[in-house]
Amino acid sequence: MTTTKTENTKIAIRDLNLHYGSKQALSNISMDIAPKNVTALIGPSGCGKSTFLRTLNRMNELIDNVRIDGSVRIDNVEIYDKQVDVVELRKRIGMIFQKSNPFPKSIFDNVAYGPRINGIHDRKRLEEIVETTLKRAAIWDEVKNDLGKSALALSGGQQQRLCIARALAVDPEILLMDEPASALDPIATAKIEELIYELKQSYTIVIVTHNMQQAARVSDFTAFFYMGELIEMDSTKTMFTAPTKKQTEDYITGRFG
């Protein structure tokens, strides 16, 4: 168990356990996630990294039979507290999924979905928000002339950046990305990675990735999961040059996984 101490902590996880029915998927995870940094979660598939990611915005609750105990604090607020409203929580945390999942609506309506949900219907305001977020997601120039076009007509990489824009439109502080580039070609992937680099100026980003090089390229911190446990976490540089655990080294050097 490694706890990385940083100058401050955005998300503090303590003794987190998660069970699917009788099967334990996460055991005793404790971790601190630094604000305005990129934290990469790596590990072989089925190691619990995606499950872990979803505990941060309580998306696991959508699955029946899930039991979670332990503590997750964001800005020192316990998000598993009974008093916490999960909808309010999710408004403050953006999530990007493995497979891009734009709504079958126009590009504009995709981005405007979140603001509209929050009660913004003024066309001008929406237009402003859409433009700003699309610019932030580095896709404005590609779509500015056909905002009315169906989002499904975009390429995979564009769709994924649109999804990022959609998440940014509700102005979250944290972005959770679940293998956002795994379905994309190298050029589209590079664009996403570039974007992540830009975004970390303003957002706390947690990214699950399969791709070791990607973790090395985009992240400031890396956490290695194996069999539902957090094996090791440190600055990415340390993790990739001098991991303390044998398992981490084996995985990073490609000996298994």
Partner: peptide, 11 residues
């Protein structure tokens, strides 16, 4: 996926 996207946006 679409339900998840919407819920994750705080809907």
């Amino acid at each position: 996926d679409l339900r998840a996207a919407s819920l994750a946006l705080g809907a």
